[in-house]
């Protein structure tokens, strides 16, 4: 059904931000093609009129709701401690917008 080409693989890699190094590309492509051709067997199952399964345990289809009350979640200090980089109580990232050269 789907033709898995190197071009498609690279596009997918970009979508999910997985760098697909040229060294491993051939192996990844081969594995990918093999798995996709295996999962394609599902096309032979007749699913006409079947609703897709969104929740697996019967009688539990609804998300339970709690009262809208404020609760203490995690402490800011604690969360900043596990961030790779932080500054002035915030998580630090490289510059997102660079000034225009003009």
């Amino acid at each position: 059904m789907a033709d898995i080409t190197e071009e498609r693989l690279l596009h997918l890699a970009k979508l999910c931000r997985i760098n697909c190094s040229s060294k491993k590309r051939a192996e990844l492509l081969r594995d990918f093609q093999q798995v996709v051709s295996y999962i394609e067997v599902l096309s032979e199952v007749d699913t006409d009129g079947v609703e897709p399964c969104n929740y697996v345990v019967s009688g539990c289809g609804k998300t339970p709701l709690r009262e809208d009350e404020g609760v203490n979640t995690l402490d800011r200090e604690l969360l900043l401690q596990i961030a790779p980089s932080s500054i002035a109580g915030l998580v630090r990232v490289p510059t997102v917008l660079t000034p225009s050269k003009n």
Binding site: L12, L15, F32, V35, I39, V45, T47
Partner: peptide
């Protein structure tokens, strides 16, 4: 990558949605 593929535009119905239906079966 495989998960991104089965959810990607043009393939979601053929793979992801189909699998959800087979799961129900």
């Amino acid at each position: 990558m495989l998960g991104t593929f089965v959810l990607s535009s043009g393939y979601q119905d053929a793979y992801y949605r189909k699998a959800q239906k087979v799961r129900q079966l």
